[in-house]
Amino acid sequence: MAGHSRLAFLDRGLLAVSRLLKDTYVQWDLSSKKGLFQCFDPRLKLLFLIFFAVAISLKRDLFSEIVVMVMLLGFSLLSRLPLVAVYSRTIALGFVFGVLVSFPSACNVIVPGTVVFPLVTLTGSHDLLFYHIPRTIGFTREGLQLVALLSLRVVNSLTLCTLVLYTTPFPDLIKALRLFHLPSVVILIITLFHKYVFILACSLEEMHLSMKSRLMSSFTSAGARTWATDRMAYIYRKTHRTCEDVFGGMLSRGFTGEVRLTESAPLSRLNWIAGSALLALWFIVILL
């Protein structure tokens, strides 16, 4: 199976593209469900995201982070998100960026403190450059608390983003950016960028499948690289041509350099009530 193994890097790359496409469909599907957060206005959710991201970063105690975690779990449940899929991803990333990155700081060589899990006992303490190596090396209570805090922050931040992303159709989220007075033309550029990433990803997947369907003998590594490079060039040319065509499409529909997009509708009463409740929750978390 030499041919198969030599195509592995292409397959892996294309697998990532397929995941991107699948995620887009999953996101659309989940955001169309009837759930708590799906009822809220995207602008409200954007503000919720920003306010709570700040709160998560500011809090320095485990209890507050646990409260936020429980709150986000509740919101995810009420928004009918698939908890296993959401939390398996956020916890895995929390483990990598929270536990693994900060784990050395649990040791008293990095952060001094009360040793709760001794690892090694030396004959005496030593000083090496700016490190103080104590006689007993081990995990400290302060260090472990720090690791837990950082891990919870990562998990909470990711859950927060996932909650907002999975309950809001992406186009609505882009439109909600107008809350920050982003010019309409910037909104249009972000929309186009997102749309064409999706369309080009579809093209890429189809090209790969068509190549596979015609492949009868093993593909050399050099051949695979040549194919990948050639397709990259093709995608580049296609992007360039599409860019010109889209500009033509915009011109034909009255674009003159200034863009007028739909004005945002005022927030409904339900959203004002929900916004007030979320703000109250935010104050509680901050005051904890």
Binding site: T191, G249, G254, R260
Partner: peptide, 24 residues
Amino acid sequence: FQDPDVQLFCPTVFDELLFGPLQL
């Protein structure tokens, strides 16, 4: 246009239909 993808560039279908009249 022959390829509708080059003609559709707004966030949603509703925005797409509104684009022309608003520019006018």
